[in-house]
Simulated assay, not measured.
Amino acid sequence: MTANSAELLLHPVRLRIVQAFLGDRRLTTADLRIELSDVPPATLYRHVGALVDGGVLTVTAQRKVRGTVERTFRLHVDRATVSEAELVAMSPQDHRAAFTAFVAALLADFDRYLDGGAPDLARDLVGYRQAGFYATDEELLGVIAAVQAAVRPYLAAGPAPGRTRRLLSTVLLPAPERTTDQGA
C-alpha cells in the first residue's frame, strides 16, 4: 500500500465503499448507488475512482449499457488495509478521525438494516454487545487468533443459496484502570 493508504482508506465515503465489497463481492457503480443511496452519484464516482487509482478496487468486467461502459469492480482485500507503520505514525487526532469514520460506516450499515423493512433482531441474528474480561497480552493474542480461526472458513465461503452476507465488526480496547483500591 502507498504511504497515503490511511488517507485513502479512512475517508468516511471510501470506507463505506470498501465495506460494501467485503465478502468477495463484485459490484458496479449502479450496485453501489443502490447500497449507498445517501451518497450523491458524483461523489460516489469520484471516490470509486480514487480507490481504483489507489489499487484498492480493480475492474473485473466491462459491458455496454445504453451507450456507456458499465464496469464491475472487485476489492483487493490485501490492499484495503492500513499498514502497521502508518498506524504507528498516526496522531491521536488521526486515529480519532479514522475511528469516527469506522463508527459512522457502522451506523450507516445499521440504519440501512433498520430502514430495510421489518427489522427483527432475533430472527436476523443481529446483535451488539460488549463484554469485559481480564487477559494478559499473550492470552489476548490467543483470543484474537481463535476468533480469526473461527471466522476464516466463512470468509472463504462465497455466496450460495441460503447464505446471507454478514458483517462482523470488532472493536477491542483496554478498559480504563480503576483509580481506587482494586481489592475493594
Rank of each mutant, 00 (worst) to 15 (best):
K64Y: 12
K64R: 14
V65A: 11
V65R: 11
V65M: 09
G67S: 05
T68K: 14
V69F: 02
E70P: 01
R71D: 01
T72I: 03
F73V: 02
R74K: 13
L75C: 04
H76K: 04
V77H: 12
V77M: 10
D78P: 04
R79H: 14
R79S: 10
R79C: 07
A80V: 00
T81M: 10
T81Q: 13
T81G: 11
T81E: 12
V82Q: 01
V82M: 02
S83I: 06
A85E: 13
A85L: 11
E86W: 01
L87T: 08
L87D: 07
L87Q: 10
L87A: 08
L87N: 10
A89I: 10
A89W: 08
M90A: 10
S91T: 15
S91A: 09
S91P: 01
P92V: 05
P92N: 07
P92K: 02
Q93M: 13
Q93H: 12
R96G: 14
R96H: 14
A98D: 00
F99D: 08
F99Y: 14
F99G: 07
T100S: 15
A101E: 00
A101M: 02
A101W: 00
A101L: 03
F102K: 00
F102W: 05
V103Q: 11
V103T: 14
A105D: 05
A105Y: 02
A105R: 00
L106P: 01
L106R: 06
L106V: 10
L106Y: 08
L107Y: 09
L107W: 08
L107R: 14
A108H: 02
D109V: 06
D111K: 09
Y113A: 01
L114S: 09
G116C: 03
G117F: 03
A118H: 09
P119G: 08
P119S: 08
D120H: 03
L121D: 11
L121Y: 09
A122M: 14
A122V: 15
R123I: 05
D124P: 02
L125V: 15
V126M: 06
G127S: 06
G127E: 03
Y128H: 11
R129V: 14
Q130E: 12
A131V: 15
A131K: 08
A131R: 12
A131W: 13
G132R: 14
G132T: 15
Y134T: 15
Y134D: 12
A135D: 02
T136K: 07
E139W: 04
E139K: 07
L140M: 07
L141G: 09
G142C: 02
G142W: 01
V143K: 05
I144E: 05
I144K: 04
I144C: 04
A145W: 02
A146Q: 11
V147H: 05
Q148R: 15
A150K: 06
V151H: 02
V151S: 03
Y154W: 14
Y154D: 12
L155G: 04
L155W: 02
A157W: 06
A157V: 10
G158I: 02
A160C: 00
P161I: 04
G162Y: 05
R163M: 07
R163T: 06
R163V: 06
R163A: 09
T164F: 12
T164D: 09
T164E: 12
R165G: 04
R165Q: 09
R166D: 04
R166G: 04
L168F: 13
T170K: 00
V171P: 01
V171M: 11
L172C: 05
L173P: 03
P174A: 13
P174L: 08
P174S: 10
P174C: 06
A175E: 11
A175V: 07
P176A: 10
P176N: 07
E177T: 09
